[in-house]
């Protein structure tokens, strides 16, 4: 019987990974749900397209290989991001200190304005200036749209620590970007000049 995998919960989908006849479609559904989150995390942490794609692919291959009928999956996105984090750490540890960390603007959509691209680029560069734990927590919260609890689960720290990292990190981010805000007079919705998505 053909079942609708989109209606299944994460735990059910994970358990289906160990069944040969359901494995492909269950995996496709998990991929559909969480690939974007994992990919954004890899891209923002590694800041390099090729490395990010390698880490992203390794994440899902390892996830697939590790599928076990005996494991009770309670937090699938957290589990995936934990694998992704380990993959990214492996790449970061192997990475040459001289590797070129650009490309963030590559592949930017054409419907972005120049100002939006500029701001995104500045945010990316500002993130690089933050301590790694702060940056990682902000990326998971800001780009991967994860809750503080899930971030705490992935980073294996208390929720209050995550909160502090994110708050301190975002405040530091604003301080770094202050010259941009001053130049573009970003102080209120009335004075915005297009750098904010008005929709």
């Amino acid at each position: 019987m053909d079942r609708d995998y989109a209606l299944l919960g994460d735990g059910e989908l994970y358990s289906l990974l160990t069944q040969r006849q359901h494995r492909e479609r269950a995996f496709a559904e998990i991929y559909r749900r969480y690939s974007h989150r994992v990919f954004v995390y890899c891209r923002k942490i590694l800041q390099n397209t090729n490395d990010a794609e390698d880490a992203f692919q390794d994440t899902f291959l390892k996830f697939l290989d590790s599928a076990s009928a005996s494991r009770q999956m309670t937090n699938l996105p957290g589990y995936l991001l934990t694998i992704a984090r380990n993959c990214c750490m492996d790449i970061l540890n192997k990475r040459s200190p001289h590797v070129e960390l650009v490309e963030e603007l590559h592949g930017a959509s054409n419907d972005h304005t120049v100002e939006q691209d500029e701001l995104n680029h500045l945010i990316t560069m500002a993130l690089e200036l933050l301590p790694f734990h702060w940056r990682e927590a902000i990326v998971l919260q800001l780009y991967a749209d994860m809750s503080y609890q899930d971030i705490a689960h992935v980073l294996e720290v208390p929720v209050t620590t995550v909160r502090n990292w994110i708050c301190r990190g975002k405040q530091r981010l604003r301080e770094i970007l202050q010259p941009y805000f001053d130049e573009h007079d970003v102080e209120s919705p009335d004075s915005s000049n297009g750098t904010v998505d008005q929709s």
Binding site: E53, S109, D197
Partner: peptide, 19 residues
């Protein structure tokens, strides 16, 4: 508003980061 601006920009960028 600056925090809001950063958040919106990040969300917009994340939408375009697809495998």
């Amino acid at each position: 508003y600056q925090a809001y601006t950063i958040r919106i920009a990040a969300l917009g960028q994340a939408q375009h980061l697809v495998p």
